[in-house]
Write a protein that binds this DNA or RNA. Structure first.
Lengths: 231, 231
DNA sequence: CGAAGTCTTGAATCGAATCAACGGAAGTGG
DNA sequence: CCACTTCCGTTGATTCGATTCAAGACTTCG
């Protein structure tokens, strides 16, 4: 296997602040996982035997309900841990993680998790905090789904994505990975048709600029106004 | 202050398995908090200065969005920790916890949290797991809100409440605390009118029996069928 | 008893889903 | 390089579930 440098994981909040020897030891147990666009790191329902850290690229996590309808649970950015089923005591992955672009991850067998927890108590605290952040985010999504109209939710989702994956361009803030109307629809619980119509309207008044799997935020303040509107 | 027995907290999963001396020490730093029905343990936005364990009763946690619309985030049962803002690194309580019935809780100042974490590493693991469970639950709610119809969501919520707070009676499974149509509506993102209509229909076919702030599940299998229906 | 809180039910309205058809871009393979 | 297929997006017409509006009944409580 290729040589892995400890700088790969030192930058992740989960491992930040650990002594170099510990990082090297952790790295020694990892294997690299190349994920070409469209490939899955794991699939919903599979026994959860490994956990991961994304080094490069972007993953989309989806969930299917028993009736076969799908939603997008979140996007994973470089530095994020994912598939940490051990931490939440589930035996099967609750969703499917697919590469939205060519990606690179590290993978550890689950057994490593317990050993790490025992050896590095700070890991539990860090994981707790990251779960807390995700919980906060989920609660906010629930509140939005319960109380906001579709247009407001689209605006909120676009703003959030722009914040977490925005790249400054001459035209505005480009969401830096392929994002289809369908993806967005599944993030906020609507249909691609409604997203498409909304984008057409927004484009006409200069709020965004968009194309095939591509979104550029041109007027952030304008979108924020929509996201918060109450009528 | 009244004498607190260690059995009060030993039953909570968070503290299970700790040595008796540790329990006594933890208890020594707690203060008891009586919450008559309708009173709040804390309110959304308040600086989070304490964390809690519910001993007896039931609390309803609500959230307001910036536009003033409210939702019910969860119900807290005896043995649950709540208001653990420290664990998720927020400075203000993200919701309001109100007693749905006369309740009794223990409260600790936040400073105790860090000390406990340092002294008892298992606490971080337990908290991590409980956050994980809540995260799972939130994700499921998001999936339901995104993909299920209102009637299915009502059925799901009623079944969940019956499971976590059901008391067997001659007529069926009574949800053991006052639960208004409005509460249910705010749990699943609909209006009290729709909940009321749905209950009327269900009552007519013998699925449930209900009255003022009162719900009895008579036909669990029937409700499950509705919750899972795809048409 | 009056007042506030809770629930029910009808009628009208509306937002968004569904149904449907088509246009265009990207990838595939000869 | 071009024909072919597949995927993604747009837009109109229609339908439908659920909200909103409205009025009244019942319960509980001070």
């Amino acid at each position: 296997m290729a040589q892995l440098d400890r700088s790969l994981i030192a930058g992740s909040p989960t491992f930040a602040g650990m002594p170099p020897e510990a990082l090297d030891e952790i790295l020694a147990q990892a294997s690299a996982l190349r994920l070409p666009k469209g490939e899955a790191a794991f699939r919903q329902g599979e026994p959860a035997e490994r956990f991961f850290l994304l080094l490069h690229g972007r993953l989309r996590v989806t969930r299917l309900n028993p009736q076969g309808q799908q939603m997008v649970a979140r996007f994973i950015a470089p530095g994020d841990m994912f598939g940490v089923a051990m931490a939440i005591q589930v035996e099967a992955y609750p969703g499917t993680a697919t590469a939205a672009v060519d990606s690179l991850a590290l993978a550890w067998p689950n057994a490593v998790w317990s050993a790490l927890l025992a050896r590095h108590p700070s890991l539990a605290v860090k994981t707790m905090q990251s779960l807390g952040a995700r919980l906060q985010d989920s609660q906010k999504r629930i509140l939005d789904l319960s109380t906001q109209q579709v247009e407001q939710r689209i605006a909120g989702a676009v703003l959030q994505l722009a914040q977490q994956a925005g790249r400054k361009t001459e035209d505005g803030l480009l969401i830096d990975f392929p994002l289809s109307r369908q993806d967005l629809a599944e993030m906020i619980g609507t249909t691609l048709h409604t997203v498409s119509r909304t984008f057409s309207a927004w484009e006409a008044i200069g709020l965004v600029e968009c194309g095939r799997q591509r979104v550029v935020v041109r007027d952030r303040a304008g979108l924020q106004k929509i996201a918060k509107k109450q009528d």
